[in-house]
């Protein structure tokens, strides 16, 4: 196992920025889709709300959570990344994120394409913490699946 340096995840500018200034933190009222997730192992929480526009694209997002820095930073990044996407595109992005975290070593192009989210690939060097980055995404997927009915 590659031994990750703590600074990789705790001193990374992008992760720090999301951690300190979480995006879309206000709770959305009248959301079309709302989902709450808890990590049963640690109790961390994520709450997501989405409003869709007439074309079925994510227009507004609300994200709140209680948890570690990785959990919180991921939620913030996710809330930005899914804006403007259709629900199938949201699911595709989630699949991509899972692949980055759990698939084979991700190529640079993939990380670049994922933008801020790409910085979370460093969590791969802390295997027990990968689940902290996945909670927001599984919550999102549950919300999308439930929203579809």
């Amino acid at each position: 196992m590659a031994l990750g340096n703590l600074d990789e995840i705790y001193r990374d500018d992008v992760i720090l920025d999301h951690r300190r200034n979480p995006r879309n933190a206000a709770r959305l009222k009248d959301a079309d889709i709302a989902a709450d997730g808890v990590n049963p192992f640690c109790g961390d929480e994520i709450h997501l709300q989405m409003r869709l526009d007439d074309g079925g694209r994510v227009a507004e997002v609300g994200f709140q959570g209680e948890g570690c820095s990785i959990n919180q930073a991921t939620g913030s990044m996710l809330s930005e990344a899914i804006k403007g996407l259709t629900l199938p595109q949201v699911e595709a992005l989630s699949a991509k994120f899972h692949e980055m975290m759990q698939g084979p070593e991700p190529p640079d192009e993939m990380l670049t394409a994922l933008g801020d989210l790409g910085s979370l690939s460093k969590v791969r060097d802390f295997p027990v913490r990968i689940k902290c980055a996945l909670l927001a995404w599984s919550t999102l997927e549950d919300g999308v699946a439930a929203g579809r009915g």
Binding site: Y10, C42, D44, G67, C68, S69, I70
Partner: peptide
Amino acid sequence: HPHDLGTF
């Protein structure tokens, strides 16, 4: 957060 502390 306790997890971040635990990792440290």
